[in-house]
């Protein structure tokens, strides 16, 4: 049933790397920003322990930005492929529709993981000796979050009329989600209407999960976050299965 998934994913990764700005925009720039900000913070705060932001905020913020760029580039690529008839051409083969879309999800997951890995390697020297962030658990949490939020990407890709609108429409949906994610201000401090909105977005659960896992919470403390991310994934996947357009 998933015949062709591996090959299609590999080809899509190669194609992505051939785009002039593709690899730079999604991998190099986030890692570079991370390193620069990390250096600025550590040089000022000459304390033996990391500042609160460096400890909790920075890795999570960086991860969320990676996820957002993954979703935006997913939306863009899907709408370009639809407009160019590439989706239609692939569908006129024995490839199953879900295989075609899964390949794109896999590409984004792999690139997200790669960015994260580079970021960790580059940022390692800012982590004081003796502090061991749970990098594997964090990676797993990031994959779960990316997966869930990517499923919104397919809903957005279903509603953008043409490829030209992919980026703006995606941004209009996603940046408010970051703003309301609890990353910059605790959700409890929002007015009630905003609080409601925030709860309807998977971003909060992603932030709560990533933040928690990064500071060493056990998974058992975040079962609710994981459950909500899965619920959102199922919901958005079912919705996009209904409204997704191939041409």
């Amino acid at each position: 049933m998933l015949r062709g998934l591996g090959k299609l994913t590999w080809i899509e990764i190669k194609i992505f790397m051939r785009e002039p700005l593709g690899a730079i925009g999604t991998i190099v720039v986030p890692v570079l920003v991370f390193v620069l900000v990390g250096r600025a913070i550590t040089s000022k705060a000459q304390t033996p322990s990391m500042s609160n932001f460096a400890r909790v905020g920075l890795p999570v913020m960086a991860s969320i930005l990676i996820v957002i760029s993954a979703v935006l580039s997913l939306v863009t690529i899907i709408s370009i492929y639809r407009e160019g008839g590439i989706l239609k051409r692939l569908r006129a083969t024995p490839l199953r529709p879900q295989t075609i879309l899964s390949a794109h999800v896999l590409v984004k997951l792999l690139l997200t993981a790669a960015s994260l890995l580079l970021m960790f390697l580059a940022g390692k020297r800012y982590i004081p000796p003796g502090v061991h962030p749970p990098i594997v658990s964090f990676a797993v949490a990031l994959v779960i979050s990316t997966w869930s939020i990517l499923s919104i990407g397919f809903v957005i890709a279903s509603i953008v009329p043409t490829a030209r609108f992919a980026q703006p429409v995606g941004a209009v949906v996603l940046y408010p989600m970051v703003g309301l994610s609890g990353l910059f201000a605790p959700i409890a401090s929002f007015p009630p209407a905003f609080r409601m909105l925030a709860r309807l977005s998977p971003m909060n659960y992603a932030v709560s999960l990533l933040q928690g896992i990064w500071v060493g919470d056990p998974w058992s403390a975040h079962l609710a976050d994981v459950a909500m991310l899965i619920v959102f994934f199922l919901l958005f996947t079912a919705l996009s299965a209904k409204i997704f357009r191939w041409e």
């Binding site: 194609i15 590439i86 239609k88």
Partner: peptide, 17 residues
Amino acid sequence: QNRIGVQLQQAQLQKRI
């Protein structure tokens, strides 16, 4: 689809494939 071959009127492939 396993037994037919198809060329579509307005299809493209990935630009850099």
